[in-house]
Design a protein around this nucleic acid. Structure first.
Lengths: 248, 248
DNA sequence: GTACGGTTTTGACATGCATCAATAACGGAT
DNA sequence: ATCCGTTATTGATGCATGTCAAAACCGTAC
């Protein structure tokens, strides 16, 4: 009874996972319809962040994970000497903060790349809930392991692939992530600056720029500023595999 | 009563976490003395693997995580084109397989670098147990997030640091991991070949070799084959920070 | 002890990308 | 619309590290 009432009187601060269009990507993905209320109970409808604003900062107390609702986020770590390394880009439906799970402080800094809204999952409540919902726990393990795998793939990209291969791989990754959200996988606008791409891929900005124009001259993509169109997806896929060819 | 009996009648196949010298590094670290039996109940005393033998293979069904008891393990991923990327080295007390948690198949291949013994944690039982022991669940989150962080650090190393800096960082990492086990942090034998180091750090074998001799000529280390002595730890730490200096 | 395959070291050379420098395009504020 | 700071592009040059090649070393098996 009480639950039924709460269901219809959702406070304005409470998110409604039931109605969220991202429920098939985000945490609700792993939660039974019946248990969805329990997830809604702990989630906090987050603030809106403007471009450049910090969602959280490295070395401050770790309190919450955040799901991107709209917009985009970049995470980065700063080494002792002040060097920044972009560690990831997060799009709607993706969970930010997993690299801090089980730690006292945030392991990285998260910044909004554009106007961005998020849902907030307080970590103590989330851990408690995953202890009760085995499927949710399993999903958390899955998400975290995927982040490990992604990071390993990045390491491989950085250590073995050329500038062209790295950029082709990033474009394809973004493409498939747009597609998951039922958006065009060939025509989208990059949420991040060339600088962020360069930093993420371990390249100089100038190199990123040069590769973009080279791809454009080859008719593989068409780009003006952040607007990108993938004209020849197959060619891009070939580029990422190019590396192997030479070694055969 | 039954528990007391079981305690003293440990089957030969069952590991004794109670008596393990690594219990302050491994999973028991996060488990109350009282609950240690429950961990022992699910752990399987693993096989011994000879150098080069596979503990598990990428893309085969994910069944267990493994804790290194003695010896050392390397994990690597193979891309579609057959390129190998070493993703990590695991020493006694460390847990292998976290990057596959929540997945159907192993995300990487694990090989013994030398004669190695392991403890095996079947994943279904481990997940069940972490649902019951919040501290253990928290610790699993912690371990996985640390693996994410480590991987991000590696990415940073690969994209921003010189060959010397990468190798200095690896030597220091190994040093501190030996020290945690109460072994000498300045005098140890590398468990892996130059080739593995090169692959892990995104370098050519020849470069690794050259840096080793350069360090040796500078009196920072002394190395003959896999035997290494760190003669000037401070100098090594300076090398890893060198990068920042120039940029100031 | 010797002989073999694999690993490590050393040298000479080539190259992809960083760096430096300058210009061009963009976007927000007035 | 205009201005100014930021971001992106384009060109010229240098260097760290990869690549190729060969020698030295090592452990292992016979």
């Amino acid at each position: 009874m009480a639950q039924a009432i709460r269901l219809h009187q959702a406070s304005p601060l409470k998110a409604s996972c039931h109605q969220c269009s991202l429920s098939n990507l985000c945490l609700p993905l792993a939660v039974e319809e019946n248990d969805l209320d329990r997830l809604e109970d702990i989630v906090q409808q987050g603030r809106i962040f403007n471009r450049g604003e910090h969602i959280f900062d490295q070395s401050t107390p770790f309190r919450s994970c955040f799901a991107v609702k709209s917009g985009a986020i970049k995470t980065s770590i700063i080494s002792e000497n002040g060097e920044e390394q972009v560690t990831g880009f997060f799009m709607p439906g993706e969970l930010v903060g997993l690299d801090s799970m089980g730690s006292k402080n945030y392991a990285c800094t998260a910044r909004a790349l554009e106007r961005t809204s998020v849902c907030e999952f307080p970590i103590d409540k989330l851990e408690e809930l995953t202890g009760k919902l085995p499927d949710l726990q399993h999903h958390m393990y899955h998400l975290m392991s995927q982040e490990i795998q992604g990071s390993h793939q990045l390491a491989m990209l950085l250590s073995k692939n050329t500038a062209e291969e790295r950029i082709a791989a990033l474009l394809l990754s973004l493409s498939s992530r747009f597609q998951r959200r039922r958006m065009s996988g060939t025509n989208f606008s990059l949420p991040m600056a060339r600088n962020d791409i360069a930093n993420f891929l371990g390249l100089a900005v100038e190199t990123v720029s040069r590769v973009f124009t080279r791809f454009q001259n080859q008719g593989i993509i068409s780009a003006r500023g952040r607007e990108v169109e993938l004209l020849d997806v197959e060619a891009l896929q070939t580029v990422t595999r190019e590396f192997s060819r030479q070694n055969t």
